[in-house]
Amino acid sequence: MTVTLLSWSLLLAQLMIGTAMLFATWRVLWGPRAQDRVLGLDTLYVNAMLLLVTFGIRAGTDVYFEAALVIALLGFVSSVALAKFLMRGEVIE
């Protein structure tokens, strides 16, 4: 019985996080400013990390943990680099 409960709540949670990723993607694609795109990308990274954690629960293995960790790290580094670039670089919008 608990398998049904867990798999349905997992499905619902994954759908919600997936929708959240779509919203973030909208900001990445349609800005309007460059900083909005970077903010959307950062949110997208965090949401993708959470989605991987839920996949890990569904599969019952913790192989997804490393992937989630790497995504979180990459998201941080890329967002900081982009924010720094916005502050210094010539941005073409």
């Binding site: 709540s9 619902l12 949670a13 994954q14 919600m16 949110t43 965090v46 959470l50 839920t54 629960i57």
Partner: peptide
């Protein structure tokens, strides 16, 4: 799971 995903959804 539902609360966490819900908060994430509302945030996005």
């Amino acid at each position: 799971l539902l609360i966490g995903a819900g908060l994430t959804l509302v945030g996005s």
